[in-house]
Amino acid sequence: MDCKRTLELLPAYVDQELGLPEVKELDDHLQTCPACHSAFVSQTTLRAAIKQRATYFQAPIDLESRIRAALPKETDAQPGRAKQGPRYWGSWNWMNVGPVLASLVALIWSAGLYLATPSPNQRLAEEVVSSHVRSMMVNHIADIASSDQHTVKPWFNGKLDFSPIVNDLSTQGFPLIGGRLDYLDHRSVAALVYRHRLHLINVYIWPAAKERQTAIQTASIQGYHLVHWSEEGMRYWLISDLDPQDLMALARILQAQAQRVPG
């Protein structure tokens, strides 16, 4: 490749928009031609200078709310409803009785279903068990395998909308194995993995919707032991096949560190 062609393609080369064969040719030329190489350095530094120095103007804080206010409201998108005109309860005709009865039956039926539905904690406990079993089964216990809390904690940055407390608890007999993203209670949660002797423990953490503080509760399902509570606005669910007393010990440690570091 000659100098003329090189200088033509240099902008696209600097922008990483060239095809592989041309990149190769240009690389070769730049290594042998000092003049073109200095043009390359010059363009690269100019790019870097623009990126670093040119002002990126941030939108004024109230612009978003003004745009939201100016956008048509949800109800405006359904003009059909207004055209139907008023309806009076008194003017119903007997043709409607069938559908009304049917919907009454459906209402009672669904109320019955609702009452028969397990409590939220029961459902969540089953979710936690499935998640724990799955993490063991597919040998996918950790996305980030590290005993270093300073590696595991930053790994969650940007993956979650909260920052879980991560500490290696080797000195207390619970070495940190790693961390993982999981999905519970209709949201992404942090899963920390600790080990105690040969048992693995999953610690699920996510922000509490309502209850800021609840006492420790325990459960046993399918041979697994669960411990859960809320602390400083976060929910904690621990699960393992570990002895319940040892699991409770870990729960106490985690509870103590959450109280030390609010949030």
């Binding site: 990126y56 103007f57 939108a59 612009l63 745009i67 939201r68």
Partner: peptide, 9 residues
């Protein structure tokens, strides 16, 4: 709305 800054800039 996540691209408001880009639009304004």
């Amino acid at each position: 709305l996540p691209h408001l800054n880009a639009a304004y800039n």
